[in-house]
C-alpha cells in the first residue's frame, strides 16, 4: 500500500517545497544577532592628568615622600653620602682597623738607603 503511494518520493518532493524565509524574517533575525553580539573587550588606559613640577613638589611636600620629615631625612642621607665620597680615605683607616681587627702594614718598594746598590 505504501509502495503504491511512493511515500519516499513524496517526502523528497515535500523537502524540495519547504518554505523559504522572507527577507523581512531574515532581517529581523540578523537585527537580533547584531543586538545580542558580544562586543570585543576594549581595555582603556586609565586617564593620566598632565603634571607639572609644581604638582610634583606639592606631592613631595604634602606627603608623597613622607612629608616634611621624610624630606629632611632624604636631605641628610644625601649630604652624608657626599661627605663619605669626598673625605680623605685615611680618616677611615682607624675605623677599618677597629672593625676588622687588623693593622695596616706598609711595604717600602724602594729603600731609602741606596748606598748598597751604589757598591760603597
Amino acid at each position: 500500500m505504501q509502495d503504491d503511494l511512493d511515500l519516499d518520493g513524496l517526502f523528497a518532493k515535500a523537502a524540495e517545497r519547504g518554505p523559504l524565509p522572507s527577507a523581512a524574517l531574515l532581517a529581523r533575525i540578523e537585527a537580533d544577532a547584531r543586538r545580542e553580539q558580544p562586543r570585543p573587550m576594549a581595555v582603556a588606559a586609565p586617564p593620566r592628568p598632565a603634571r607639572g613640577w609644581g604638582m610634583i613638589l606639592a606631592d613631595v611636600l604634602g606627603g608623597g615622600l613622607g612629608g616634611g620629615r621624610g624630606l629632611a631625612g632624604l636631605s641628610l642621607a644625601a649630604a652624608s653620602g657626599l661627605w663619605i665620597g669626598v673625605a680623605q680615605p685615611t680618616a677611615l683607616s682607624p675605623v677599618t682597623e677597629y672593625l676588622t681587627g687588623t693593622s695596616t702594614a706598609s711595604l717600602e718598594l724602594l729603600p731609602s738607603d741606596l748606598s748598597l746598590l751604589a757598591g760603597e
Binding site: G18, P19, L20, L25, L26, E30, A33
Partner: peptide
C-alpha cells in the same frame, strides 16, 4: 558570521 549562520539555519528551522 551571524549572516552566514542565518542563511544556513533559518530555512531549516522555518521549514
Amino acid at each position: 558570521a551571524a549572516r552566514l549562520l542565518t542563511a544556513r539555519l533559518a530555512p531549516r528551522a522555518l521549514g
